[in-house]
Amino acid sequence: MMLINRDHRKLWIGQLVSQTGDFVFSTTLALWIGTVLLAGRPYAPVAVSGLAVAVALATLLVGPPAGVFVARWDRRRVMMGADLVRAALTGALTAVSFLPDGTLPEGAVLTAVYATVFLATGAAPP
């Protein structure tokens, strides 16, 4: 019944595409860290699990305070702005991934990955 409403249908399809992209992004990051960035290192599984920690921290620390403000703001602007922020963060991390090996230390790349995941999760819709 709700998909009869054109605006609701567009929102639902947009969220479906966004969540699919989030799944692909998180899977790609886990594979990149575990098989490329830290290949053969004994601490690679711990580094991959850091992605889940970054998501959990963002959900717990950013979600409740942000919800107070977002509930009072224009939903359309908030969603579009959040998606633009998430796209910029993902683009910046993509640029980092294309740097030649050894340009940045592993710790700096991992920090960039965790910061991107934290901020992108904080800007994501619930």
Rank of each mutant, 00 (worst) to 15 (best):
I4W: 14
N5T: 13
R6S: 00
D7P: 09
L11Y: 13
W12I: 09
W12Q: 05
G14Q: 07
G14C: 04
Q15N: 14
S18D: 13
Q19V: 10
F25H: 05
S26P: 00
W32I: 09
W32R: 10
G34D: 03
G34N: 09
V36G: 03
L37V: 04
L38N: 00
A39L: 02
G40F: 00
R41H: 12
Y43K: 06
P45S: 07
G50M: 15
G50H: 11
L51W: 05
A54G: 02
A58M: 05
V62G: 00
P64V: 05
P64M: 05
P65D: 01
R72G: 06
M79E: 00
M80W: 13
M80C: 07
G81D: 04
A82Q: 11
L84N: 04
A87Q: 09
A87E: 01
T90H: 09
T90C: 13
A92E: 01
L93H: 10
L93P: 09
A95D: 01
A95P: 04
V96K: 10
S97Y: 08
S97T: 10
L99H: 05
P100G: 04
D101Q: 15
T103R: 08
A108P: 11
V109R: 02
L110K: 02
A112P: 12
A112M: 14
A112H: 12
V113Y: 01
A115H: 08
T116G: 03
T116L: 07
T121K: 04
G122Q: 12
A123T: 05
